[in-house]
Design a protein around this nucleic acid. Structure first.
Lengths: 216, 216
DNA sequence: GCGCTTCCGGAATACTTCCTTCCGCTTATG
DNA sequence: CATAAGCGGAAGGAAGTATTCCGGAAGCGC
């Protein structure tokens, strides 16, 4: 990625002026650290912890983001983008049969992806961004269902719930060296495959799920 | 349950003297309140919250339990007993085929059962009590496997993980009136049924799981 | 190199939260 | 009715944490 063109004469607002090189480096370290910390502790992650992970002073955080909530916003936005990338990669690289399964596996492999989306504090007004990802995911899901590798009664919200569940197990059980949650993941994916009667309970709609995640 | 026999002459240590009737009532309200609060917030549940739920002053909590950790111990012990009861009921009332599935459903229906077990703070030294329940659960599981209703590659720890996962989803999604987690539960149970190749990852042992749960 | 501007670190501030203690008052009990 | 057990809840005291502030360091254009 190239730097922006050099300023040409006229005054530059703070918005458009490129960051000093060291500041640019720090910014990306902060984003990464915040992503990890929020993924691990949710919104309870402390600014001090984030700063330490980024090997930066707290002051530096506040130079870039007016407050914690705005920092989280930036992280959520980045996670959104990441999910979109994964979804597109899966659509183009993976067979219809394996589509959903592979999507879930790849999302899980990037812990911050779904956890950060859920880290929002209850009073946050901006949505969880599910609305953005749902259509892409829906495409992948329907394709797999048409190919007959996923039960027809599965809904998009079911996949999201699966991701949340695996993530929560990974939070508790996984370590650097061992990932017991992967076994659980496959168990869950098996439940999505055809061969069993549909569950007796109605699925959530995406709007419902979004409301739930935003309201606690 | 009848009160203990009246004291006969000799001095009674504080241990054996029966509680005053009002104190006895309060004690059970405290236990219930603590169970619910720990189930909802984990060890973060505040003493004030617990006292409020029990409609009692905080002082009363400390008259009965020297501190928060000991209160949790009492709750965990009660939950243990509850699990044992559920396991025995399932063994005697339910068919071999449906055994595990019913056990899981019943445990989920009593939220405090598994959540409280996991509420322990990281520095708590006493075990999670998995060791106590595991043998009973193992009996139920093997019975269902012999009956052919559960894949042979499923282990006791898998069932525990399933319980943890459903509980965490219920924590986030369920309300008084709607229980989306029930749909997820059935999905998960379907993954336990025969008809799919075994997962490629090794199961945890109970000892490993116990260590994991105790160490965070 | 030089001066200017941006940026950095992290101590200090100003809270909030929460476990625990304490004590004057109430209530069961015999 | 006397006594001891029990009760409520304010206050103590220790942590923890978001945010501010400013002296000094470091990049940038010349």
């Amino acid at each position: 990625m190239t730097r922006s063109a050099a300023p040409r004469g006229g005054a530059l607002t703070a918005e458009q002026r490129p960051l000093r090189r060291d500041a640019e480096v720090n910014l990306s370290r902060i984003l990464t650290a915040a992503r990890d910390a929020f993924a691990e502790y949710g919104y309870e992650a402390s600014m001090e912890d984030i700063a330490a992970r980024a090997e930066v002073g707290v002051g530096t955080l506040y130079r870039r983001f007016p407050n914690k909530a705005d920092l989280l916003d930036a992280v959520v936005e980045a996670a959104q983008e990441r999910k979109r990338q994964i979804a597109e990669a899966v659509l183009s690289e993976v067979t219809a049969e394996e589509g959903v399964f592979e999507f879930v596996r790849r999302c899980i492999a990037v812990p911050s992806c779904w956890r950060a989306t859920i880290a929002a504090p209850p009073w946050r007004t901006r949505g969880t961004g599910l609305g953005q990802t749902a259509p892409l995911l829906e495409g992948i899901l329907r394709r797999s269902q048409s190919a007959g590798s996923v039960r027809p009664d599965i809904e998009v919200s079911d996949i999201v719930v699966v991701l949340m569940a695996v993530r929560s197990i990974a939070d508790v059980c996984d370590t650097k060296s061992s990932k017991p949650s992967l076994r659980f993941l496959e168990l869950l994916l098996d439940g999505l495959r055809p061969g069993h009667e549909g569950p007796a309970h109605d699925p959530l709609t995406i709007a419902q799920l979004d409301r739930i995640l935003r309201h606690r």
